[in-house]
């Protein structure tokens, strides 16, 4: 954790704030700038000049701040200057046709994909800075994958406990106690001793969620978390996500679950061809989309 200590000493925001002060920060958001020492983030941000007037929902401190992301895969230009700013406790839904770059964008947010250019700040940490301890940063960024990616040779408990032991250096007993608590949060404590192959897809995905939240991340990234599931198993995963949201988790979700987006999202971002086409509250994006491409996409999805 030395690297992050260095960074908070460098005046970046939020690194040495203990967990649990989060909501205080939020309620104090209106006073932001008054009770903060000079040189802290609000200054940094206004200095960056990127806090556009068209982002009224960004009143709170952003947890995720991705700016001008470009990504090339060889000759393919899959992200063409994408901005994505996610405030604390916000649930942002990213939708769009396949190949629109939404998954790539998500994977740039924990640097599973390296952006060709742009900047990614998560919880005040510059992910693209060479000096950043990426492995320390990634503990703050939980990720859930379309294909679960549980470790098949470990039990559910072992899956959740691995990073607690090897990354956070906790003793086996403490790691397993925390892992069990995380499994309880997704209502799978009774499956702790099961191997992934003995669990349904929905249960596997909930274990994957537990694996991520056990590290107490500041933000959770979901990459099509229900796309690989049989329809009757989707509900349990969405329920786990709903409960996570009610607990105040900041979430970025790439998904086609439009019903869930309508009900739970604070903001919907519609992407096509590597760029953000339109974004806004779900009622607006779904109810009165401004862009023709958004309308076309939503029409196709609803017909399906």
């Amino acid at each position: 954790m030395n690297a992050s200590d260095d960074r908070s000493a460098a005046g970046r925001e939020g690194l040495n704030r203990p967990l649990g002060e989060t909501s205080d920060d939020r309620s104090a958001a209106g006073r932001e700038g008054l009770n903060r020492p000079l040189g802290e983030t609000s200054d940094d941000r206004s200095a960056a000049g990127r806090e556009g007037p068209d982002r009224p929902r960004q009143a709170h401190r952003p947890i995720v701040e991705a700016r001008g992301i470009h990504k090339h895969f060889g000759p393919l230009h899959v992200l063409r200057g994408v901005d994505l700013v996610v405030a604390e406790r916000e649930l942002v839904f990213v939708i769009g046709p396949s190949g629109s770059g939404k998954s790539t964008l998500l994977r740039c947010l924990n640097r599973l994909e390296e952006p060709s250019s742009g900047s990614v700040m998560v919880d005040g940490i510059d992910l693209l800075d060479r000096r950043t301890d990426l492995n320390a940063a990634r503990q703050r960024i939980g990720m859930v994958f379309q294909s679960f990616n549980l470790y098949p040779h470990m039990t559910a408990l072992g899956n959740v406990a691995l990073a607690l032991r090897k990354v956070q250096g906790k003793a086996r007993a403490e790691a397993e106690a925390r892992a069990m608590a995380a499994l309880e949060r997704v209502h799978l404590a009774d499956r702790a001793g099961h191997y992934p192959g003995q669990l349904s897809g929905g249960q596997q995905q909930r274990v994957a969620i537990a694996r991520a939240i056990a590290l107490e991340p500041r933000v959770m990234l979901f990459d099509e978390p229900t796309s690989a599931l049989d329809p009757e198993l989707v509900g349990g995963v969405l329920q786990a996500m709903r409960e996570l949201r009610e607990g105040g988790m900041t979430m970025v979700v790439v998904s086609h679950e439009m019903g869930f987006a309508r009900a739970a999202a604070d903001r919907v971002v519609f992407m096509a061809d590597g760029a953000v086409v339109e974004e806004g509250p779900p009622a607006q994006v779904f109810g009165a989309p401004r862009e023709a491409r958004t309308r076309a996409f939503l029409g196709q999805v609803e017909r399906a």
């Binding site: 492995n135 990616n149 691995l162």
Partner: peptide, 11 residues
Amino acid sequence: GQMEAARSTGL
């Protein structure tokens, strides 16, 4: 995906 999942938890 196994490597990606492991790396995403900070390993």
